[in-house]
Amino acid sequence: MDTDLLKQLNEERQARRAAILITDLGDGSGRLLREGESAGDAFGDAAERAFRSGKSAVVEADGRDYFLNVHLPPARLVVIGAVHISQALAPMARIAGFDMTVIDPRTAFATQERFSGVELLAEWPDEVLERVPLDAYTALAAVTHDPKIDDFPLKCALEAGCFYVGALGSRKTHAKRVERLKELGLDDNRIGRISAPIGLDIGASSPSEIAVAILAEVIAALRKRQVAVR
């Protein structure tokens, strides 16, 4: 590998973009494959598998061994709403390996006492998201029930291509939300990506059970996501 290639790789990683470093184990020559770029016939399937699973591996092609080292940004989970569900979700998300951030401008909810050990921001979502934008390796769950707080980050998440976007609320509540998001200029395709009612259908009823359902759905979205080739 040469220093330029290392710089390019580090740039991709710092920008939270997925990339694979393909190294010829015979002579050490390498190249960078960014997500969405075509890897060519020899590596196509292996590269797509690596992007999806995050697992690096040695691949043989034309009688030579190549190492595909995949660098995926660490997955984040942004939760809008410092509610009971989020309190249950926080420790579980940490165990599952997600960096979780809770955003809620209502200071009565967003207290350190209720959320020890979690990044908690008692601010409006638009302020936070301007500073720390959402991306394809972030999941967003909006659980306040309050359109004033939930709608804007939902729109941001759909536009940023978050790998998961979920919103709490009944089908009736969601139907109204769909109308509001349309008025904000989002099309049906994008709005259709919202998981609502939120969470895998496991019959969850308590806040903790809903948290399990949300986390399971987030993991499914992360591990089963399709890598789109540009």
Binding site: L6, R13, H71, P73, G97, D99
Partner: peptide
């Protein structure tokens, strides 16, 4: 889920 966020990660050091 990856090591890329570790402070002083090896590739940054390199």
């Amino acid at each position: 889920m990856n090591d890329t966020q570790e402070p002083l990660d090896p590739l940054t050091v390199a």
